[in-house]
Computed example of a mutant assay.
Amino acid sequence: MTPTYNATKETSEGTRSTSKTRTKMKRRTEESPITEISQIWQKSGTCPEGTVPVRRIRKRELLKAHSIEDYGRKKASFSQPQNLDSSVQQKNHSKAILFTLGHRYLGGKGDIRVFNPYVETDDEYSTSQVSLINGAYNDYELIEAGWAVNPSVYGDRQTRLFAYWTVDGSIKTGCFDLTCPGFVQTSNEIALGAAFHLKSVPGDLTYQITIYIYKDTYTNKWWLQYNEEKNIGYWPPELFSAMKSNAESVEWGGEVYSTRVGTSPHTGTQMGSGQFPGPLFYACGAVTRMRIHDNYPSLKSPAYVQTFTDEYFCYDARYVGDYVEDPEFYYGGPGRNPMCP
């Protein structure tokens, strides 16, 4: 059954109200560079002014969590890169990312290809996102957004728009979308947690979304913008300590969670499209038009970046920066395969 959305009047900042909404995605083809489609739930109606959409959480979704307190939260991971030459191995998490360090970051942006990767079990997930991070590798603050296939949160294997935050490496805080107090929804046109109406097949028509997370230096709110059209909402500064000021790093790429990461047999949960990057770059996960906002007054391409992957035989990462006008990042993989048994 497709999740439904309630509509109630928006009250004050921080109040979670609900509604039906519409959002857009772009697909690029040679004949039609941009084709707009709606999220699946929009078939049931639209959202009136003065309301915001919140996905209704059903009992069957709560039952998939280890506890009510754990619902909507990532399992703790220790993954923040400490410099451009190293990163800390994660427990039960596998990443293939591009990251940048060395500045006070006030924003990060990227165009992310959207797919519907295979997720093997209900307690696993696959995400692709833009992330901003500050803090020690085992106690970091993070905000991120992108797309996810996450049965334990959404109750199915559809690809959905998500946002996430934590202030302690997901040990005790943080959640997806609006499943806990934190992110403040302001848009009546975009639904966090809503499924995309897409059918992405490697080598066929490909869809993408644009994610931009940036800080309002006057209010210190971290805003989430979708598809360069409207802000979805913001993370209030009261949530954070270090991130009140700035982020220390920006990441682009994919993540897989499974208790069978780093073990044999490895999980078969896919990242990106499920294809390794190259030689057919059009068929794999990708982030293009990567931008940062540091002390420079406007967005710019990051000057220094590096790829990182926990398990390059399972999920790989490739950065194409030479001889191209705008660098591109490719990532993903099938998980379990002959090289990753």
Rank of each mutant, 00 (worst) to 15 (best):
Y5I: 02
A7Q: 01
A7Y: 00
T8P: 01
T8F: 03
K9C: 05
K9L: 12
E10L: 06
E13L: 07
G14E: 02
S17N: 05
S19K: 00
M25N: 06
M25D: 08
M25K: 09
K26N: 14
K26V: 11
R27L: 11
R27K: 13
T29D: 14
E31G: 15
E31T: 13
E31R: 13
S32G: 13
S32E: 08
S32Q: 10
P33D: 10
I34E: 12
T35P: 00
T35Y: 04
T35G: 07
E36K: 09
I37R: 06
I37F: 09
I37N: 04
I37K: 06
S38T: 11
I40A: 05
W41N: 06
W41I: 04
W41D: 07
Q42P: 04
K43R: 08
S44D: 12
G45F: 01
T46W: 11
C47D: 03
C47N: 08
P48T: 11
G50C: 08
T51W: 00
V52T: 14
P53M: 01
P53C: 01
V54P: 00
V54Y: 03
R56E: 13
R58A: 09
K59E: 11
E61R: 01
E61I: 03
L62N: 09
L63Q: 13
K64H: 13
K64R: 15
A65P: 01
A65L: 06
A65H: 02
S67I: 12
S67F: 09
S67Q: 12
E69R: 11
E69H: 14
D70M: 14
G72H: 01
G72M: 03
R73F: 03
R73V: 02
K74A: 07
K75M: 11
A76S: 14
S77L: 11
F78S: 15
S79Y: 01
Q80G: 05
Q82R: 10
N83A: 04
N83D: 12
D85A: 15
S86W: 01
S86V: 05
S87P: 01
S87H: 05
V88L: 10
V88R: 04
V88C: 08
Q89E: 07
Q90G: 03
Q90Y: 00
K91H: 13
K91Y: 09
K91G: 07
N92Y: 12
H93T: 07
K95G: 02
A96H: 00
A96M: 06
A96T: 04
I97P: 00
I97T: 02
F99G: 01
T100V: 13
L101E: 10
L101K: 15
G102M: 05
H103V: 06
R104D: 15
R104M: 11
Y105P: 00
Y105D: 00
Y105I: 12
L106S: 05
G107M: 08
G108E: 04
K109R: 14
G110I: 02
G110C: 12
G110A: 07
D111N: 14
I112A: 08
R113S: 15
F115D: 11
N116W: 01
